[in-house]
Amino acid sequence: MSPSYERLTIDQVKEGDELPPLSVDVTATTIVLGALASRDWRPMHHDKDFAINRNGTPDIFMNTPNQASWFERYLSDWAGPTGRLGRIKFRMHNSVFPGDTITFKGVVDKVETDVVGCSWASVSLVLKTGDQVDTTFSARIALPSKAGDNPWARRGDDWKP
């Protein structure tokens, strides 16, 4: 018997769809745990004095790989485990600090099927603190074309991220 979980298929997605927002209260632990989980030992992600005096920032701040982890979590909350990331791109405009409440939002820009029959959703996401945009993010995520399809089964020339 197959395990039970949500499976978002491409026919359930259309351009302009909004992803449910996600808010997170960021603490110093969030920043340090994220940095160490990603094996990032650089001091601006755990040493407040270093961050202030060397980087000129008001506090330690979230590192790049952990921001990627948070965006991946946000996308997989929406797509479920059958969603497979093909490509991501993001730009950090402002840093994320302890004490911030960050909010993720997203919208589907495009739905398409490629030449090898893989179905893709292109989505634009944003991470904000209040009204301030901290990071903009885009992703191309493969979704099942129908029940039973599994993007993770694609290999070699059948996978064109």
């Binding site: 990627a68 990331l85 093909g86 490509r87 950090m92 991220p161």
Partner: peptide, 14 residues
């Protein structure tokens, strides 16, 4: 001093 500003990643085999 240096910081990472942008990142793009394409994923292949898990």
């Amino acid at each position: 001093e240096a910081v990472a500003t942008d990142s793009e990643v394409a994923y292949g085999e898990p």
